[in-house]
Amino acid sequence: MLKDLFRKPKYVTVTPAVPKKEMPDGLWVKCSGCGEILFNKELEKNLKVCHKCGTHFRLSAWERLQITLDDFSEYDADLTSCNPLEFPEYEAKLARAREETGLQEGVVTGEGRVNGVSVAIGVLDSNFVMGSMGSVVGEKICRLIERATEHKLPLIIFSTSGGARMQEGILSLMQMAKTSAALARFNEAGLLYISVFTDPTFGGVTASFASLGDFIIAEPGALIGFAGPRVIKETIRQELPPGAQTAEFNCEHGLIDLVVERGQLKNTLTKLLKLHQRGDHTWPSH
């Protein structure tokens, strides 16, 4: 199926990541939202949204690309993390993540078309070390933004992240500065950036490129914030009220533009993209 959708044959070798906890191998899964037994086939047909309660299950980067794009060609597929701090057990952690996800790192970037409109696109994957941002994630996002700037392409980034990649220390933190600096130049070129928050997005990713979109969209129920509920509880012993940090909470507090259901997302993106296409807008003669 991936083969039909994407141009380069190498994509068929990439196994789409399947969130293990929520999607055990087998015929069915229990919805984390309502407890309903859902058949995997049905669930996939419904873009991994529970038909009963609307819970949006997490998607892997490749699943997201597949439901969003007409076609896709990947950038920088081989960029690989090192262990610059010689942090204990980091290499083993990376090896395990590669093995489990089939991904080389926590973000897939490239170029493709959304209903015929060419875009530069990046999708983070929370299955790879929680989608945390180390040097490679930062570099890939940065190159994506630079290519979009150079080729005057609209930019879409789907975020999901636990935050910084602790094992890369200060280098991880500086990726926030690096990606934001690239976006400053992108903005100067007058180009369109749509940021889509998916569940969950926290820390350095929220506090950099994901919050800097011209338009910020989130999927229903996605948890979005700076500090995660556990961090808040541990540092200031504050228990967050139910519903805090959801997409809806963020929208209510004026922090994002709109909450869009997965089934409508491609349409919404297409509309926004078309509204920003240059060229043939002519005012009726008067």
């Binding site: 600096a181 506090a207 919050s211 914030g225 700076f226 500090a227 961090v231 808040i232 967050l240 507090h253």
Partner: peptide, 25 residues
Amino acid sequence: AYSGLAAEERGQAEAIAKNLITMAA
């Protein structure tokens, strides 16, 4: 940066991100 409900409600992440992009340029 402070971690707490009030900071989240008022956009802690957005405030930091805006500083980064502003300082860069």
